[in-house]
């Protein structure tokens, strides 16, 4: 007999992704682990525990369990407030140049709620904003190509021309109408 779910609607949080090339198309990739979020398929969390984690006890990863596990750090992460994403944007002085995407994400399945966000078993993007890369002001046509590829996810995609990831996050946090769908 299946357990009765607590809720029937997904919870929505905020995430940052890297935009990477996968098979010739731009795709979303998690920042911490190299999981590609494939269009039209939910991302199902797995615990990526590895032996080297035993050298980093503060990560508290426990191999061999379904994600998310309360005593671990696994699961698909999302923040409750978009402004909390600012921590994960490389500083302007960083030499790392990666195309980022900011997004709202639907979370469901087993969900662990924290004071600032969630860890969930399943996730899928609900809305995507594409800023300019922080240091590299690529041509708008390149952003349009990325947006066209990301449209494969079947959710609203917004090009934030001339805005860095930090500026996109700040505008979303301020509820700027410019960012509305």
């Amino acid at each position: 007999m299946r357990p009765v779910p607590d809720y029937l609607e997904p919870v929505h949080g905020w995430r940052l992704w890297s935009v990477v090339d996968a098979g010739g198309r731009s795709r979303l990739q998690s920042l911490v682990c190299p999981s590609i979020w494939w269009p039209r398929h939910e991302l199902v969390a797995t615990c990526e525990a590895s032996p080297r984690d035993s050298l980093r006890p503060w990560r508290r990863r426990m191999p061999g369990h379904a994600a998310p596990e309360s005593r671990c750090t696994c699961g698909v992460h999302a923040m409750e407030r978009v402004r909390h994403l600012g921590t994960y944007v490389p500083p302007a002085a960083s030499r790392l140049v990666v195309q980022r995407a900011v997004g709202r994400v639907a979370l469901w399945g087993e969900v662990i709620e924290g004071s600032r966000g969630w860890r969930a078993a399943c996730a899928y993007p609900a809305e995507i904003w594409i800023p300019h890369a922080d240091l590299r002001r690529q041509p708008v046509s390149e952003l349009e190509d990325i947006a066209l590829d990301l449209a494969d996810y079947g959710v609203p995609v917004h090009i934030c021309d001339g805005m860095t990831a930090r500026e996109v996050i700040a505008a979303l946090a301020a509820g700027s109408p410019r960012m509305a769908a």
Binding site: P5, H41, E42, E113
Partner: peptide, 23 residues
């Protein structure tokens, strides 16, 4: 990402599919 102090655990089973599946 640091989601802060764990508060509670629950199960969500959406009535509508959150994934726009291929037609």
């Amino acid at each position: 990402m640091d989601i802060g102090k764990p508060l509670r655990i629950y199960t969500i089973e959406p009535v509508e599919d959150p994934v726009p599946r291929p037609q």
